[in-house]
Design a protein around this nucleic acid. Structure first.
Length: 426
RNA sequence: GUGGGCGUAGCUCAGCUGGUAGAGCACAGGAUUGUGGCUCCUGUGGCCGUGGGUUCGAGCCCCAUCGCCCACCCCA
């Protein structure tokens, strides 16, 4: 048997409906904020991510799907979306369009990681990027869009964690200060943190080991050391969010794994998935486009992990999406044509309608209709077809009546309105 | 990359101290030749993850390998 590649997955019906719903809601919500979709290649020059995401990051250092093509060029399956957006901005001269630019994207990303729940090698992200505005108000818009989106999906327990990373110039002095403060405790840190000491000292702040947390809790938060401008920026973001009623929790030790972030950084974690399960991450990246050789255009955005989002979707929302009422048309005898014609009438009225096309007996046909969960069965035999009629059967109630073809839609529709929790269980 | 758990039907699993493979659910048909969900009957479906070894004989024991899951790391 040929099996799927490790870390990839098959999204089968009916779960695929949740994915469609989440994506459609993203188009709707972010569209309402003025964001239009940008569709980008999955394949990019490796150089883009090395320079964009950062050579020292885990993503670039050990997680990329990189290969050389037939002409010896080094290509990489995109591990994230923002670098591609920046590349497209530069390459297509989007700087010529009225700013700011509001862009939305959704699609698969690839990272070579050892997988576990909520972590795949091919996973999907939904994200937005606001390019060309450096103000706190821009950050606030992005966060408001995120908050609105999650709210529309029915989440009420998700918290946005927010921190201030300062400007790139603030980074080195802070790291020096951090090491100074941690120095006396260096030997008490966990093995991972002693490794991080040289590789990525900021990540020590994020360590989950109890002893490390204690040590780290005594250090100065990065936000207290950053430039006055950066600090004022993020303070303003918090202030505006508060007046808008967007709940945000300060997270002084929050750092992110991508080099391009600065000032405002944030994450959304799901209690349902545990502390590590970040379902959304984002922040400001004012230097990225310039670092990639483009104009000095600021940006802010986020990426939502669609797999994780779908995984923790509120149950009520799932029910609404999954329980779409539908009609099963069952022909009896030589009534196949009449069955299809009836089905078309229903479909034109917007009713989801399936026709029994396996040549089953009426008995088996109804059994099939019940099993697939049809709310209503429409039965049509040669007699009914000849008279221009059909039998409309309410599957939950077990009652039926004969109606003319012209009255079919109005006979069926009220039966679909009902909550219909009575039928098919499990 | 590190540590742990598990691989038998589409799914959940049983399978005794080694004796040639089972159940429930699901799926298809029938009992009821034009009426479903209950019941009953029948049927489809397995190189027991794979390879090697021990043995008269391996689903079971041994070795290897692959795959899956969980935690760490990291991130979405």
């Amino acid at each position: 048997m040929i099996r799927k590649v490790k870390g990839t997955r098959d999204i089968l019906p009916p779960e695929s409906r949740l994915w469609q719903a989440v994506e459609a809601e993203a188009v709707r919500t972010f569209g309402a904020f003025g964001y239009d979709e940008i569709r980008l290649p999955l394949l990019e020059p490796t150089e883009l991510f090395v320079r964009g995401v950062g050579e020292g990051t885990d993503i670039v250092g050990k997680e990329m799907y990189t290969f050389t093509d037939r002409k010896g060029r080094s290509l990489t399956l995109r591990p994230e979306g923002t670098a591609g957006v920046a590349r497209a901005y530069i390459e297509n001269g989007l700087g010529q369009r009225p700013h700011p630019l509001r862009l939305f994207y959704a699609g698969p990303m690839f990272r070579y990681e050892k997988m576990q729940r909520g972590r795949y090698r091919q996973f999907s992200q939904i994200g937005i990027e606001l390019l060309g505005a450096a103000t706190p108000e821009a950050d606030v818009e992005v966060l408001l869009a995120l908050h609105t989106y999650l709210g529309r999906l029915g989440f009420d327990d998700l918290v946005i964690l927010l921190n201030d990373l300062g400007d790139p110039e603030d980074r080195a002095p802070y790291v020096a200060r951090l090491k100074e403060e941690l120095g006396p405790h260096r030997e008490a840190l966990c093995a991972d943190c002693r490794r991080r000491w040289d590789e990525n000292p900021l990540r020590i702040l994020d360590c989950k080991v109890e002893r490390c947390r204690e040590i780290v809790s005594g250090t100065t938060p990065i936000a207290e050391t950053v430039s006055a401008e950066a600090r004022a920026h993020v303070d303003r973001v918090r202030e505006l969010l508060e007046t808008l009623g967007v709940a945000v929790r300060p997270a002084p030790r929050l750092v992110r794994g991508l080099d391009y972030y600065m000032r405002t950084v944030f994450e959304v974690v799901s209690p349902a998935l545990g502390e590590h399960a970040v379902i959304c991450g984002g922040g400001r990246y004012d230097r990225l486009i310039a670092d990639l050789g483009g104009p000095a255009v600021p940006g802010v955005g986020f990426a939502i992990g669609e797999d994780r989002l779908v995984d923790v979707l509120p149950e009520a929302y799932c029910r609404r999406v999954l329980e779409v009422p539908f009609v099963a048309v069952v022909p009896v005898g030589a009534a196949a044509a009449a069955a299809q014609a009836l089905a078309q009438r229903l479909r034109e009225a917007g009713v989801r309608t399936e026709v029994e096309v396996s040549g089953r007996s009426l008995r088996a046909g109804l059994k099939w209709a019940a099993k697939t969960g049809a709310r209503v069965a429409v039965i049509v035999g040669e007699d009914e077809a000849a008279r221009g009629e059909a039998v409309v059967r309410d599957m939950a109630a077990g009652e039926q009546r004969t109606v003319t073809v012209d009255a079919l839609v109005e006979a069926v529709e009220p039966l679909l309105e009902a909550d219909g929790g009575a039928d098919d269980g499990h």
